[in-house]
């Protein structure tokens, strides 16, 4: 069980997140939706301890998540990467094994096999010698998906994985999400624009600084909730609103 409790983030005096609480059980695909600047990336980064929390804690298996980061695979937003970096597809995916290999050790046959399998799964093995910058946006996203797979993590956090991505890649993303779910992994995926794929998630978190709603997509995307998330400052979200059947 991944538990986020009373998470709050202030960045140089600007409110990022306030009192966000939820929990995700293994085998669940949870989507995060909200307008631009709602704090979706901030939420993911705060969960990983990449930005300082002003309040709250994130636990996995009763221990703080930031002490067991090797169990988390994180796929950053595309804009965070310098695509002109001189690196091949193969070596990007190989990064997934950096922590497992440990200091001073080079990858052996087993590691190469894991990387190969991950690239094969996203149909990118034939591009393994290409420089990452020579690929299309969708292909680049698939390489990062392969990197996450090769990490063999238990928790997967995706920050805006559908941005600038073609239809086949989107299909592969959802196929892989499904497979990971069946393996009992925990998945949290943020997107500002889910389109038709909204119903593929088990649960949706509607976010705008606070957690406005949490539940099945059809329960969450009510006109009232959407209005509260997207149309500025309205009635503040009280803790009673964020209760969900999954909250434990």
């Amino acid at each position: 069980m991944l538990e986020v409790q009373e998470l709050a983030v202030n960045y140089r005096g600007v409110l990022g997140l306030e009192a966000v609480s939820f929990a995700i059980a293994p085998g669940q695909l949870v989507g995060v939706i909200g307008p631009n600047g709602a704090g979706k990336s901030t939420l993911i980064k705060a969960m990983l301890g990449l930005i300082p929390l002003s309040h709250g804690i994130v636990r996995y298996c009763t221990c703080p998540l930031c002490q067991q980061l090797e169990r988390v695979a994180y796929v950053p937003q595309r804009s965070q990467i310098d695509w002109d970096y001189p690196i091949s597809v193969w070596n990007v995916v190989m990064m997934a094994r950096t922590r497992r290999l440990g200091w001073f050790r080079s990858p052996g046959r087993a590691t190469r096999e894991i990387v190969r399998a991950a690239l094969e799964r996203v149909d990118m093995l034939r591009f393994r010698h290409r420089r990452i910058g020579e690929l299309s946006g969708g292909q680049q996203q698939r390489v990062f998906l392969a990197r996450a797979l090769a990490q063999q993590a238990e928790i997967f956090l995706f920050d805006e994985p559908f941005t600038g991505v073609d239809k086949p890649t989107e299909a592969i993303l959802f196929e892989v999400f499904g497979e990971l779910k069946r393996q009992g992994k925990i998945l949290l995926v943020s997107s500002h624009d889910w389109g038709d794929s909204l119903n593929q998630v088990d649960r949706l978190l509607l976010l705008n600084q606070r957690l406005i709603a949490d539940g099945r997509p059809d329960q969450v995307m009510t006109p009232d909730n959407i209005h509260r998330a997207y149309c500025g400052t309205l009635a503040p979200a009280y803790p009673s609103d964020v209760e969900s059947p999954f909250f434990c």
Partner: peptide
Amino acid sequence: KIFYKELLFYTFDRVGAQAMGL
């Protein structure tokens, strides 16, 4: 030479490296 793989990760994707606990 010794820290090549960590340096490669760090310089390519600092946030990703941090997220993995480097």
